[in-house]
């Protein structure tokens, strides 16, 4: 059986809020290492990969591999019934028809119990190769969100160009063009504004802004975001969570003929 207790319901609320416009029905794969999810959007252009390690939960117990097939719309409806500060416990049998959620208020003596009916989801799993990326950019998640939102008003796609000490986001649209450059920046006083660019070779790739704007819905999960790029491979956008957990998005590039 599965029993996983989260100190704060907000983590799961934010994860589901962040991915539910990209993927609809997902298997939450539970085993003794934690709860994982991998799902592609309908067009097979973007992929969500979530890992909530067992250390994220306290306690965490999962004796067998259990796949919880959940409709994310339904999940969101139930998670909205939890206060952000509530303690959240997920429970399921070994061959479950439902997943149970218990929300406990730490301040009040209130316990809320919900069940969500599970579905059989036949999901394609992709093997994602370990990649040594040519460029890794760490920047404030809010800054990345602003850039994607601003450029999406001008164009459908953005070119991300990483070179030594600088990364440039460039778009060309019908009404005009835009470009935002960021340089390495580190401040002891405001480390949350740091930009770090690690580069082994220059990279320039073009991506659909529609998907990037969608990924940025995860900005509330982490103050910083990591962009990993190599020429002619999908972009990795990673939001790191506590206890080595993460929410990752992969986006296939647009490539010329």
């Amino acid at each position: 059986m599965l029993e996983a207790r989260l100190e704060q319901a907000s983590i799961l609320k934010k994860v589901v809020d962040a991915i539910k416009d990209l993927v609809q029905d997902c298997n939450f794969d539970c085993n003794d290492s934690g709860i994982a999810l991998q799902a592609m959007d309908n067009s097979h252009v973007a992929l969500v990969s979530m890992m909530l390690k067992s250390d994220t939960f306290s306690p965490f117990r999962c004796d067998r591999n259990i796949a919880l097939g959940i409709n994310l719309n339904s999940f969101q409806k139930v998670l909205r019934c939890a206060q952000n500060e509530d303690i959240l416990t997920l429970k399921a049998d070994d061959s479950p028809d439902v997943v149970s959620l218990v929300f406990e208020s730490s301040e009040q003596d209130r316990i809320s119990e919900y069940d969500i009916k599970l579905m059989d989801i036949d999901q394609e799993h992709l093997g994602i190769p370990d990649t040594e990326y040519a460029a890794t950019i760490t920047m404030p998640s809010g800054e990345f969100q602003r850039i994607c939102r601003d450029l999406s008003a001008l164009s459908e796609s953005v070119a991300i160009e990483a070179e030594k000490n600088a990364v440039k986001f460039v778009c060309n649209g019908d009404i005009g063009n835009g470009a935002i450059s960021l340089r390495n920046h580190s401040s002891v006083e405001k480390p949350e504004q740091n930009v770090n660019i690690e580069l082994s070779e220059p990279v320039a790739l073009t991506f659909s802004l529609k998907y990037l704007v969608n990924f940025c819905k995860a900005s509330g999960l982490s103050g910083s975001v990591k962009l990993c790029l190599s020429n002619e491979v999908p972009l990795l956008v990673e939001y790191e969570l506590a206890s080595n957990s993460y929410l990752r998005f992969y986006l296939a590039p647009k490539i010329g003929d």
Binding site: Y250, K254, D257
Partner: peptide, 14 residues
């Protein structure tokens, strides 16, 4: 013009 690729062009099915 650039074409949108799908992930299948880069990742293999498990």
């Amino acid at each position: 013009a650039k074409n949108q690729k799908t992930l299948a062009a880069f990742f293999t099915k498990k």
